[in-house]
C-alpha cells in the first residue's frame, strides 16, 4: 500500500500531470468513467485513475483495472473469472496482509456488494503506514470478464476519512462502464 502511494508520489514531486477537472471523466484505456467532484484533482496512468483534493497523503480515490492474469505484488495467488466475490476479496486481503509496509491491519468489514450492477465485495480496513499514521480504506472490487475493477477510498482515519466519505459514495455511484 505504502509502496503504491510512494510510486504515485514520484511523478507528483516531479512535473506531475495533475489536472483539475470536474464532471464525467474517462479512465485509462477507456474502460470506465467517473464523476470528478468539484475541487478535486485528477492523475491518470495506464492502469488507474487517482483523484484527491488535499493530496494523496491525506486522502485519495483510486479507480483501477487489472487483467486477471496480472500477478500481485505479494501473493502468488491469482484472481479468476469463476471466483465468487468472497473468494476475490480473500485474494485481495491476502496480498494486502503480506505487504510489510502495512502494519496493524484491521479488517472492519468484508461483505458482498453491488457495484455498477455487478456482484462484488466491499472491505473496510485500517492500517498504519511507516510514519505511524492510521489510514482507513473502503475498498470495492468486482470481476467483469477478464478484468478486475477496484474503486477504493483511502484517507487518514482521523478527521479526513469521514469528511470525504459522502464524496466517495457519489463517485462510486457515478461509476459507468464505457463498453
Amino acid at each position: 500500500m505504502k509502496r503504491f502511494l510512494f510510486i504515485l508520489l514520484i511523478p507528483l514531486t516531479a512535473c506531475a500531470p495533475w489536472t483539475r477537472v470536474t464532471g464525467p471523466c474517462e479512465g485509462p484505456a477507456h474502460h470506465f468513467s467517473v464523476e470528478i467532484p468539484d475541487g478535486w484533482m485528477k492523475f491518470d496512468s495506464d492502469s488507474y485513475m487517482l483523484i484527491s483534493r488535499d493530496g494523496p497523503f491525506l486522502q485519495y480515490i483510486l479507480v483501477q483495472t487489472r487483467n486477471l492474469e496480472t500477478p500481485f505484488v505479494h501473493t502468488k495467488r491469482k484472481l479468476n473469472k469463476s471466483m465468487l466475490p468472497q473468494e476475490a476479496a480473500e485474494v485481495i486481503l491476502d496480498d494486502l496482509s503480506l505487504d510489510r509496509a502495512v502494519r496493524n491491519l484491521h479488517i472492519l468489514e468484508n461483505a458482498p456488494a453491488q457495484i455498477a450492477h455487478q456482484d462484488g465485495f466491499t472491505i473496510i480496513f485500517t492500517y498504519k503506514n511507516g510514519e505511524g499514521l492510521v489510514l482507513k480504506t473502503l475498498y470495492n472490487g468486482f470481476i467483469k470478464g477478464r478484468m478486475f475493477y477496484s474503486i477504493r477510498y483511502t484517507a487518514a482515519e482521523r478527521h479526513y476519512f469521514d469528511k470525504d466519505l459522502a464524496t466517495f459514495k457519489k463517485v462510486l455511484a457515478g461509476f459507468r462502464f464505457l463498453e
Binding site: 501473493t75 502468488k76 495467488r77 491476502d94 503480506l98
Partner: peptide, 8 residues
C-alpha cells in the same frame, strides 16, 4: 496459513 496466503 501464511504460505497459503502467499500462494506457496
Amino acid at each position: 496459513r501464511l504460505d497459503l496466503k502467499l500462494g506457496r
